[in-house]
């Protein structure tokens, strides 16, 4: 039984983080629940991932299942908000998460989608030897305990012509004001305690850490919120940013 795997003993997983998000598991798929913010940004981030894949592999921009025939790994999949769309886009997807409660919620929601969900840490998965064309790791890096080990494992898991897509909050006064004070404490649009600002990574730091692991960053874009328009991608990386990387 895969769901009995225990990632708690892993070096990259912070057990308190896993327990926090595992506690939200039942609520993940409610668009108005604790993950409302993720539901709202989901179209934007999926559009970003799709574009990145189209560019990386020269795919048909208008294809319905653009990821057909490709293997994808969604790291920190939660209850599958990103994993399910990746599956519908045609990829053979594996979703992994440190919290077993999340994996249970993800499995319960997946219905007939052929997704493999596992509660396993990246370094344990890397030891199994499989590789993936696409690895997504969205809003996860800021929760990782040992980033060098984490990125090294991802590098092992990434196929030679693979693509790594990440998103994470920046560590700036504005991100503190927006995410910690604004979203968590005032608006309550993100569950309180979801983030530890001091663990946020700046784009330059992240680029250097990925380079150390053998991953070259090929692009970074910021995500900001505009009244009337909602969330948009652009040059402003001061709150949250998306990026792509490929094997060096």
């Amino acid at each position: 039984m895969e769901s009995k795997e225990s990632p708690a003993a892993s070096a990259t997983t912070d057990p308190r983080e896993a327990a926090f998000f595992g506690g939200l598991a039942s609520d993940w798929w409610d668009p108005k629940g604790s993950s409302a913010m993720l539901h709202r940004i989901n179209p934007l981030r999926l559009g970003y991932i799709r574009e990145a894949c189209v560019d990386r592999w020269g795919l048909d921009r208008r294809a319905r299942a653009v990821l057909s025939g490709r293997r994808a790994l969604d790291v920190g999949c939660g209850a599958g908000l990103l994993t399910e769309p990746l599956s519908r886009m045609g990829a053979a997807v594996t979703g992994i998460d440190a919290a077993a409660e999340n994996i249970a919620a993800a499995q319960a929601h997946a219905g007939a989608l052929p997704i493999v969900y596992r509660s396993i840490a990246v370094e344990a998965l890397a030891r199994e030897g499989a590789t993936y064309d696409l690895i997504t790791c969205l809003e996860v890096i800021e929760h990782v305990a040992d980033r060098p080990a984490f990125f090294a494992a991802l590098r092992t898991l990434l196929a030679p012509d693979g693509l790594f897509v990440f998103s994470t909050p920046n560590r700036t006064p504005l991100s503190y004001a927006t995410l910690i004070v604004g979203a968590e404490r005032v608006l309550r649009s993100i569950p309180r305690g979801a983030h530890d600002w001091s663990k946020f990574v700046q784009p330059d730091e992240l680029t250097a850490e990925l380079a150390d692991a053998g991953l070259t960053v090929t692009g970074v874009q910021g995500m900001t919120w505009r009244p009337g328009t909602g969330f948009v991608l652009g040059r402003d990386v001061s709150v949250n940013y998306f990026g792509t990387a490929i094997p060096t």
Partner: peptide
Amino acid sequence: DAVRTGLD
């Protein structure tokens, strides 16, 4: 756009 990005 939603179909192509696998959204519900």
